[in-house]
Each structure stands twice: as C-alpha cells, then as structure tokens.
C-alpha cells in the first residue's frame, strides 16, 4: 500500500534491492529464501519492464527491501539451524555462568568475571532469541539453560560442588537469576504475539 510501514530506505539498483532483501531474510531456510527472493525480483522485473526498463522510475514506488524481507521472515520464521544454535549456545553459556567452571578458584576474580560475562551474554542471547525464534524454541532454550545451570551448580568441581560451598543467600540469588532467564527468553516473543506480529512459524 502506498507510503505504509515499508517506506524506509529505498534501493538505488536491483542489485542493492536484492542484497538488502536477502540480508533481511538471512535467518530463513536457504531454499525458502532463494524462492522468495526470486519471486519478488521477478515481480519487480515485470514492473520495471512495464515502466520502460528503467529501475529508477520504479524505485520510488517500491518498499524498503529490508522491511519486505522482515515481513517474509515473519511468515516463514527462522531456519531450524538457527533454533539449534540458540539452544546450544544457551546451554554452553549457562554452564559458564556458574563460577569456577572455567577459572579456579570459583570465588576468585577471574572465575567471577567469566561467570558474569557469560551471564550477560546468556541474557543477551535469550532476549535476542526470544524475538527471533518463536515462543517454543525460546522456552526450550531457556529451559535448557536453566537445567544446565542447576546441574553444574550441584555437580562437584574438584570434589566440592559450588552449591555446597554457597551460603543460603547465594543459593537463593542463584535460584532467582535462573528463573529470570526464563522470563527474559519468553518476554519478547510473548510481547510480539500480543501485538500480533510474531506468530509462531
């Protein structure tokens, strides 16, 4: 529709249009992305031919290709490998969030730094994933991250588990931060669903 939400940065050439369209669909399955790009570009080609073969004459009436790609991503969702990568990344980072896994002693500055950095990265990954991979995959990633965190917390490292060396307050803090991971992962996808823009593909 004229001048709608697609009125962003226009492409100056077909090549730029295709590059930005494909860029916005990069998380989609490869075959689907190729088919969608081919169809849209064929349509634009027909439009260009109808206007005398000059892309510049058609360009002002086209949507921002990045926005078009985003709309198509909403229809098809992300590729399975992206969901798998988010899940695996979340599980790996979750293990690193427990002090002492990488750097000993666990209460040392090195161990705490690694744990905090991993926790920040995990929150970022889950939040990003929550807005990209859908509710189910986000819930699975958050569940995996929470499970790994609890497991590592109670597994002995050098004969002693971090849980047995922690105070009641530290265990409570650990529980709260672990539960918050699920909230962080689900909040964006649920918010998108409420807005009607993030249907589960």
């Amino acid at each position: 529709m004229s001048g709608g939400q697609g009125a962003g940065r226009r492409a100056a050439s077909v090549g730029e249009y295709e590059k930005r369209l494909r860029g916005a669909m990069r998380l989609m399955k490869g075959a689907t992305r190729d088919a969608v790009a081919r169809e849209i570009l064929t349509g634009i080609d027909a439009q260009v031919k109808a206007q005398g073969g000059d892309f510049a004459r058609v360009a002002p009436s086209l949507d921002d290709p990045a926005w078009v790609g985003l709309q198509m991503s909403k229809v098809y969702g992300v590729a399975p490998w992206v969901k798998g990568a988010v899940l695996a990344g979340a599980a790996l980072l979750a293990a690193l969030t427990v002090p002492g896994v990488v750097s000993q002693p666990s209460e040392g500055l090195g161990g705490l730094f690694v744990a905090l950095a991993a926790f920040a990265a995990l929150v970022g990954l889950l939040f990003w994933g929550g807005s990209k991979v859908g509710v189910l995959a986000s819930a699975l990633s958050a569940g995996a991250a929470a499970s790994v965190r609890v497991l590592v917390f109670y597994l002995p490292q050098a004969d002693v588990s971090p849980a047995s060396a922690a105070t009641v307050g530290e265990v409570a803090l650990f529980g709260i931060t672990t539960a918050l991971l699920v909230v962080v992962a689900l909040a964006p996808s649920l918010a998108l669903r409420l807005q009607g823009g993030g249907k589960e593909p």
Partner: peptide
C-alpha cells in the same frame, strides 16, 4: 484504492 506494494502483497500471498 488497493494499490499494493510488494511488501504487502507477497507476505499476504505466502501466508
């Protein structure tokens, strides 16, 4: 009245 652009048409068709 219905002057669709590609960003509206193709997602609608695919959906």
């Amino acid at each position: 009245y219905l002057d669709l652009k590609e960003g509206t048409l193709y997602p609608a068709l695919h959906r």
